[in-house]
Amino acid sequence: MLLIDCPWCGPRDDAEFHYGGEAHILRPRDAAALSDEEFAEYLFMQQNPKGPHLERWSHAHGCRRWFNMLRNTATNEILEIYPMGEKPRSEAGKAAYEANWRRGSAAEANALSGESS
């Protein structure tokens, strides 16, 4: 059982929340340019670490807003909660973000191509 600190509503039981899976997956802009392997990697492969995991949650039975969270899957300890569209700020969060193989993937490069920011 998790006690999740919703940025808007405060600490609530995890029964109120909806788990949205791995965070920071960017959708390729031009999927047809990816090979089958690259697209399968984007679509089916998931981070499944025994340790810090960056993930999305929504407070489905509360304010209905989404946020990102860093949780240790081996202990269920919640290490950081941060807004959608932003990157983690804690050291553990930054390390998990950088260690993620998606950072070097063709799908992510494709998603970022032509993006101004």
Binding site: M1, L2, D13, D14, A15, H18, Y19, N48, K50, H53, E55, R71, T73, A74, T75, N76
Partner: peptide, 13 residues
């Protein structure tokens, strides 16, 4: 349970 975990226990709900 909906979320990834290796804890061998889940949520009570």
């Amino acid at each position: 349970d909906s979320y990834n975990a290796y804890t061998q226990r889940g949520s009570l709900n």
